[in-house]
């Protein structure tokens, strides 16, 4: 280090010739230090507990809301289901009554009965498939229509059969009468 450097280093303090505006700078510093810190709330167990309860209550409310809306929806569904069930029962009873008539008929041969019942079984199967579809998609009008048609077919089938039986009966009677 030469004399020039030495001289400057020894007189360093003489270079601090400026004075800062202390109060102005401090005001700014203080305002920035006073900005609210993000408080770590989890340090306080009571807040932790309160937060847990809040979350639980919140979750419960959401589930409740969901269930309520679900129930309303179910209520609507129940009404529709009830109507369908009534229709279903009506046709079912009608069909089973007629099937029973066919089964009990003494005028039909076993083979004829069997043939007729196998038709009925096919329609039964179709009906069950349609019913499953109904569960998947209640609003499907085509399925509803198909179910109704299924019933109609069965009834028609039975009616035709019964008509045939009656016709043969009549003709027999008439024959008898002629004779």
């Amino acid at each position: 280090m030469d004399d020039f450097e030495k001289y400057i280093k020894e007189n360093r303090y003489l270079f601090d010739e400026q004075r800062a505006d202390k109060s102005k700078i401090w005001d700014n510093i203080e305002s920035r230090l006073n900005t609210p810190k993000s408080i770590v709330v989890w340090r306080f167990p009571i807040l932790k507990f309160a937060a847990s309860i809040l979350i639980l209550v919140g979750a419960f409310s959401i589930i409740n809301m969901y269930l309520n809306s679900g129930l309303n929806y179910n209520n609507q569904n129940n009404i529709v289901n009830q109507e369908l069930r009534d229709i279903d029962t009506y046709y079912k009873d009608l069909v089973s009554f007629q099937v029973q008539l066919v089964k009990n008929s003494s005028k039909l041969q076993d083979k004829e009965k069997e043939e007729f019942l196998s038709f009925m079984d096919e329609l039964d199967e179709e009906y069950n498939t349609l019913k499953l579809e109904m569960k998947k998609n209640l609003n499907n009008e085509y399925i509803l229509e198909a179910i109704v048609n299924n019933y109609k077919k069965r009834i028609e089938l039975i009616e035709n059969l019964l008509e045939q039986i009656n016709n043969s009966k009549k003709s027999n009677e008439n024959e008898g009468y002629i004779l």
């Binding site: 601090d16 400026q18 800062a20 202390k22 700078i25 401090w26 700014n28 510093i29």
Partner: peptide
């Protein structure tokens, strides 16, 4: 503060800039 203000103004040369840096 005064020492720091002088350090900064020696580098920056502008009073306002030095105040901002010190702050």
């Amino acid at each position: 503060v005064d020492a720091m203000y002088n350090v900064s103004i020696r580098i920056l040369g502008i009073k306002e800039d030095a105040e901002d840096i010190v702050q």
